[in-house]
Write a protein that binds this DNA or RNA. Structure first.
Lengths: 185, 185, 185, 185
DNA sequence: CATGAATGAGTATTCATTCAT
DNA sequence: AATGAATGAATACTCATTCAT
C-alpha cells in the first residue's frame, strides 16, 4: 500500500517535531517518537537507517519551510514597503502558526552535531531572488545577503521566541517601520 | 569535615559547557560531564540536586555574561556611532572568544524545558540603562527595548552562528554601518 | 515479530524468589535478578513495567499457592482429625518443599510498601469452604475465619521459620494433637 | 558530653525503626536514616561499624522488647485464665502501641541475612519461666516451649498484622477463650 | 512492510563508606 | 565525637538498535 507508507512516515516526522517542541532535543527518544506516532520503534528503521540520519533528514526537510511559507505571502505587485511588511509579519505569523516546526528548526540549527550536516542557505534562494529583484529595481538597499537575512529575519525570530507580552503587536509594527526606514531607498 | 572544593564546582561548570559545545544538549550526560571534569558522577550531586537543576543554575549564571562582557568594551566618552560599533563588534568578539558559553547559552535558551526556568531579561539591564542614556541625550533613536535588543544583537548573533566565510569582516563592518544608519539621529 | 518467551518470564519469577530467599528483599536488585535468570536487565522491563509492579505481581501470584497445595492434600472422606492433621502437616511440608516461595511470601507480606497492594484473603477461600463444611457437619468447632486461619496456620508457620531442631517432628505431632483437642467436637 | 551521645544513638535507632515501618527493609538507607535522625551519615559510623552490624545490633536489642512489655502486664496473683488473657491481649496491645518496633522485628526476623545472627529464644526466657511455673503448678497444660510460644503468640501476631476489621475485638476475645480452653487444665 | 521481543550499553541517581577537618 | 565532602560501585530504568516472525 502506497498511501499507508507515506502516512506512516509523515506521522513519524510530526511526532518527532511535536516531541521536540514539548521536551527538547534530549527528550526525543526513538521509543517516545514511535509511541507518539503510533508505530513500532522498529518501523522507524524502515524509513531511516539511524536516529542521526532521521534527525538530519527531517531537519533538512523543514529547515526552509518558513521561506516557502513566506513566498506564499508576497505578491509581485507589492512595493518595497509592502514587501518588508509582508516578510516580517509573515515570518512572525509563521512562528505562531507553525510553532512546532519553528521550535524544531531553531533547536536543530543550534545543535553542533546536526547543524553542519544541513546546508543552511540552500532553499531560501527564492526569497533572495525576490529581494535581489527589488534591489536591482532600486527599491531595496543593496547589502550582502547574510546581512539582509540577518536584519530581516533574526530580530523577528527574537521577538517570536520571547514570551508573548501584551504590546507585542505594537513592537512588531515598530520593527516593520524601522526595517523599512533602514532598507528602503 | 572536608571543605567544599570551589575549584571542583568550577570544573563541573566548564565541563558541562565544553561538552554542550562539542556534542549538543543530548550529548551532555552526567557521566561524560564527570569524566570531563575529573570528578566522580556522585560528586556532581554534592553541588546540584539534579541534572535539571544543574542545567538551570549554570544557564542562569552564564545567560548574561555576554552583557557584562559588553559593558567592559564601552566607554562613557564614546559617541553614538562608537557605541554601536563597540556593541556589535564586541558581541561578535564575545561569540568568538567565549565560543563555548555562547553556544551553551544559545542552545539552552531554545530548549523548551529549560528556557522558561530562567529569567531572560534580568541582567542585561545595565546595557539597557546605558542605551537609555544615549536615547535621552538624543544620540540614539527611541524604540522599545525588545526591538533595540532584537536589532542590535540578533543579527550579529546570526552572523556568528553561521560558518565563518572569508568576507565575514566586511559583513560585520556593513552591519555596523547599517545599524548606525538606523539607530543614530 | 519475535514471540514472547514464556519460559523467560518464568525464569525471572524463579530468579526473584530464589534471590529473596538467599539475600532478602534488599538483596534482590534488578541486575542480580537478571543475572540469576540469565536475561538482560532490560528484558525484565518487557514483562514488568517497574520493579514494584513486578514484586506486586509475583507476590500476588504466589501468595496463595500454599492453599492450593493444601487442597491437594485433603480428601473428602477424611474425618475431622485427619483433616487437621493433613492441613497442619501439609502446611509444614509445603514450607519445606517450597522453601523459596514460602520465604518469599513471608517476607513480602511483611513489607509495608508491598503488602497493601495485594489482597491477602482472596484465594484461600477454597480451604475455608472446606472447613465450613466440617463445621456445618459438627465435626469442627465453630469460630471466626480469621481465628481459624490464625490457629491452624500461624503456629506451624512459626515452627517452620525457626531453625530445624532435632525434635521438630515430635513438636509437629504435639501441635497436631493440641489443635485437634482444640478444634474437634 | 555523655547525654548527647546516647541521645544521638537513640535517635538513630528510632529513625531506623520508623523508616522501616514506612518503607520496608529496602527503604532504609544510611543517608535516609541520618536525615530522619538529624545527624550526619558519618555519625552513624561512630556508633556502628557497618550497616549490617547496625541492623543486627538494633534488631537484637528490640527483638525481645515485646516480652519485657508482657512481663509488665502479668501479676503473680493471676490465675491461669487471667494469665492467658493478659498475655494474648498484652501482645496485641504491644503490636498497636509499638507498631514501629513490632513491624521492624517482624521484618527483620524474616530476613534471611539478618535472622540467623540473632538468637531468637534468648530473652523470652522470663516469659517461659513464668509459664513453666504455671505448668509446674498444674494450671497450664504441659507442652514443648516452641509449641507454647507458637500457640500463644503467633495467632495474635497474625490478627495484629491483618488490616483491622470492625469486629477485631470480638475475634480477640474469641481467641483468648479458645486458648484458655486449650491450655488450661 | 511492519512489528513486539530482546539486549548491551547507557541514563540519572543513590548507595555504603571513608576522608579531612 | 561529629561532620559535610567525596567517591566507586551499585541502583532502577531507558536507550538506540537488531532480530525473528
Amino acid at each position: 500500500m502506497r498511501t499507508k507508507d507515506i502516512d506512516k512516515q509523515h506521522r513519524i516526522k510530526e511526532a518527532l517535531i511535536r516531541l521536540i517542541l514539548r521536551e527538547g532535543m534530549s527528550g526525543a527518544s526513538i521509543s517516545k517518537i514511535a509511541r507518539e506516532a503510533g508505530v513500532s520503534p522498529a518501523t522507524i528503521y524502515v524509513y531511516y537507517s539511524s536516529k542521526d540520519e532521521m534527525l538530519a533528514d527531517i531537519f533538512q526537510e523543514y529547515a526552509h519551510q518558513s521561506y516557502h511559507y513566506l513566498m506564499g505571502r508576497v505578491r509581485p505587485e507589492m512595493d518595497g514597503a509592502e514587501l518588508i511588511d509582508a516578510l516580517v509579519r509573515g515570518y512572525f505569523s509563521y512562528s505562531v502558526e507553525h510553532e512546532e516546526v519553528f521550535s524544531f528548526v531553531e533547536q536543530c540549527s543550534r545543535c553542533p552535531t546536526l547543524a553542519p550536516q544541513v546546508s543552511q542557505e540552500e532553499c531560501c534562494c527564492e526569497v533572495f531572488d525576490l529581494l535581489h529583484q527589488y534591489q536591482d529595481r532600486g527599491q531595496v538597499r543593496r547589502c550582502s545577503d547574510p546581512n539582509l537575512a540577518a536584519l530581516l529575519f533574526s530580530p523577528v525570530r527574537f521577538l517570536a521566541m520571547n514570551q508573548p507580552g501584551p504590546d507585542l503587536d505594537a513592537q512588531l509594527t515598530e520593527l516593520v517601520e524601522m526595517l523599512q526606514d533602514l532598507l528602503l531607498l
